[in-house]
């Protein structure tokens, strides 16, 4: 924005503010609300209930290694004809070797390269049936997942495929989005995108009737590791 345009904007607003009637305005920035209610004793139980309420699911593998996690993902994906996974890089998944374990179970694996716009490479990613990601936080009060974008952790894995599976450590549980943004505001700027996902994609536009999977994933699964 040119300095002149900026000055013009400032001038217009300052003039307006001279006569503005703004009930309740304080001189100091109020900041975020500091809640005083106690945290739920069992954040994981709350997370599970909330995620199930919005139509997602939480899974606990019998053992935490690549093979057991891959077995669970294969179960979730179902039908063997459609085994095509789009994964975050290994370094950003909390369990090493999941991609190889998926290949062993007959999965085709796609990795994101720098997206070069419309074309065959992008169309190929769009045919993936499962997206596998990690997560930076799980929010107990809403059953949400928080994912910050970065190298090796693209946005498309949690967006294009009809099924999204997130592998997350239990230690990532936080009470709520306001709590997270109050204590870790830096996360919002850590990548170009912070996405907070609360259950499967949904619409209620037609007669307020709920329907899932309209543009984003119709299924959201969390595998606790």
């Amino acid at each position: 924005m040119s300095p002149e345009a900026r000055q013009q904007m400032r001038d217009i607003l300052r003039t307006a503010l001279k006569t503005a009637v703004l009930p309740g305005a304080t001189p100091d920035a109020p900041g975020g609300y500091h809640r005083t209610d106690a945290e739920p004793a069992d954040l994981l139980a709350r997370f599970t209930t909330e995620l199930e309420t919005v139509g997602g699911a939480v899974h606990v593998p019998p053992a935490i290694d690549a093979d057991h996690v891959a077995a669970l993902i294969a179960d979730i994906a179902g039908d063997t004809a459609s085994r095509h996974a789009l994964l975050w890089d290994d370094a950003h998944l909390p369990v090493p070797g999941v991609a190889n374990a998926l290949v062993a179970r007959g999965f085709v694996i796609s990795r994101q390269e720098a997206d070069a716009g419309p074309g065959p490479a992008r169309d190929a990613l769009a045919t993936a049936t499962v997206g596998v990601t990690g997560a930076d936080a799980m929010l107990a009060e809403t059953g949400s997942l928080v994912l910050v974008s970065g190298p090796g952790r693209g946005r498309l894995a949690s967006l294009l495929p009809p099924i999204h599976v997130a592998l997350v450590e239990r230690t990532r549980l936080v009470r709520s989005l306001p709590d997270l943004l109050l204590t870790r505001p830096d996360l919002a700027e850590a990548g170009s995108n912070l996405i907070c996902i609360t259950g499967p994609s949904r619409t209620a536009d037609i007669e307020h009737t709920l329907s899932r999977g309209v543009h984003g994933p119709g299924e959201v699964h969390v595998i606790l590791v």
Binding site: P151, G154, G216
Partner: peptide, 18 residues
């Protein structure tokens, strides 16, 4: 919360894929 609460800070960064 809405299903997607999307926070965007600037365009794609040089090391990001999308």
């Amino acid at each position: 919360l809405t299903v997607y609460t999307n926070l965007l800070t600037g365009p794609r960064r040089p090391d990001e894929f999308d």
